[in-house]
Design a protein around this nucleic acid. Structure first.
Lengths: 175, 175
DNA sequence: CGTGGCACCGCCTACTGTGGAACGTCAAGG
DNA sequence: CCTTGACGTTCCACAGTAGGCGGTGCCACG
C-alpha cells in the first residue's frame, strides 16, 4: 500500500478488528454503525476489499455458501488502519439539493417549492424522532456519554434543521 | 439531453441565466453563491460544460484572451434547467471524517483525539463568526428574509455543531 | 522599458463514490 | 414442484474529487 488509505477502506479495516466478515456483512455493519454520517455503497465495499486483498491488508478466506467470502485482517492491515486513524480527519462535506432548489427558487412557480419543503421537513422530523428513540434505548442499555457522541451529533443536526424549517419565511413554505 | 441533468450541471445553467460566463467564472460564481452547501471542482465544471455544449444546452462563444471561452444559455438549456428545477430535490448528504475517527476512537491513544477535536472546533467557530458577519452585512444591504434562507441554514448548522463540540465528554476533549 | 512572476484559464488523469442491473444460490412456503 | 425473496458478488456507467500541467496576458518593479 504505497498511497494512504481512503476513509471508506480504513473503516472496513476498523470493522474487521471484530473478526472476519464478508463484503455483504460489512455493508450492513457500516450502515448500522457509521451510515448516518458516512455513506458507502456495495459496489465500493467490494472494490476496496479486493484492492486491499491485493495489497495484503486483508486476506480472503475460503468461499462459503453462495460464494460468500469472508475477509480477515492481516498485520499489515492493522498497521495501515492505525496509520490512517492517526491522521488528522478532514473537513465535513455537505451537499443538500433542497438548498440548491431554494437558491434558484426565483425561477420556480411558488406552489411547487412549498411542497418540496414540506416533504423534506417531514423526513427530518422522522429522523429526529428515530434518533431520540435510539438514544433512549442506548441509555437504557447502559451506554456511557462517550458512546453517544456520534448519535448526539445527528440529534443536534436534526434539531437544528427542523428549527430552520420552522423559521422559513412564508414565501417559501407557501404559508 | 436524453438523461436528466445532474445537480451540478443544472446549477451552471442556473447561473448562466444572468449572462454568458466562462468555466472559470462559473467556478467562482458557484463557490460564492452555493459553495457552502454544494461542492464542485474546476474539473467537473469544464466537463459538464463541454457535455452540455455537445447536447445543445449551452453554446460556446468565441474564445477571448487566454483561451477564455464564455458559454451562453440556449432555449434547450433554459428548458432543461426548468425541468430539473421542477423535480423533487434529493436528500442531503453529510460525510464527516471526524465522526469516523470518533467512532473508532477506542483504537486511538487518548491525547491525539483531543487535538483533532480542538482543531475542528476552531474551524467551526470561525465559520459561524463569518456567517454572522455575512448575515449582518446582507441585512444592512436590505436583504429580505427569503434571500437569507440558505445562509440561515449554514448559521443554524454551525451553531448546532458548536453546541455539540461544547457538550462533548472529557474522554474526547482531553479535559 | 522589459521581464519575471502571478493570476488566469482550460484541460487531463487517477482515484473515489453512486446507482442500478445482472446473475447465481439457498430457504421457505403454497 | 415452483415461485418468491433474501443473500451475496460482480460489473458498468456516470458523478465527483484532488491535484498537476501548460499556456497566456497583465502589471509591478527594477
Amino acid at each position: 500500500m504505497a498511497t494512504t488509505l481512503n476513509a471508506t477502506a480504513a473503516s472496513l479495516l476498523g470493522f474487521l478488528h471484530d473478526g472476519p466478515q464478508s463484503g455483504y456483512d460489512l455493508v450492513g455493519t457500516a450502515e448500522r454503525s457509521i451510515g448516518d454520517f458516512w455513506s458507502l455503497t456495495r459496489s465500493q465495499v467490494y472494490r476496496e476489499l479486493s484492492a486491499m486483498a491485493g495489497a495484503g491488508l486483508v486476506v480472503a478466506q475460503e468461499a462459503g455458501p453462495r460464494d460468500r467470502r469472508a475477509y480477515a485482517l492481516t498485520d499489515d492491515g492493522r498497521a495501515a488502519f492505525r496509520a490512517w486513524l492517526a491522521r488528522p480527519p478532514g473537513e465535513e462535506q455537505i451537499r443538500y439539493p433542497l438548498l440548491l432548489t431554494l437558491a434558484f427558487a426565483r425561477h420556480l412557480p411558488a406552489g411547487e417549492l412549498a411542497a418540496f419543503v414540506a416533504q423534506h421537513r417531514a423526513v427530518h422530523a422522522a429522523r429526529l424522532a428515530e434518533y431520540r428513540r435510539e438514544r433512549a434505548e442506548a441509555l437504557a442499555a447502559g451506554a456511557r456519554p462517550v458512546d453517544l457522541v456520534t448519535l448526539d451529533f445527528g440529534l443536534r443536526y436534526e434539531e437544528a434543521v427542523l428549527g430552520w424549517f420552522d423559521a422559513l419565511p412564508p414565501e417559501v413554505t407557501g404559508g
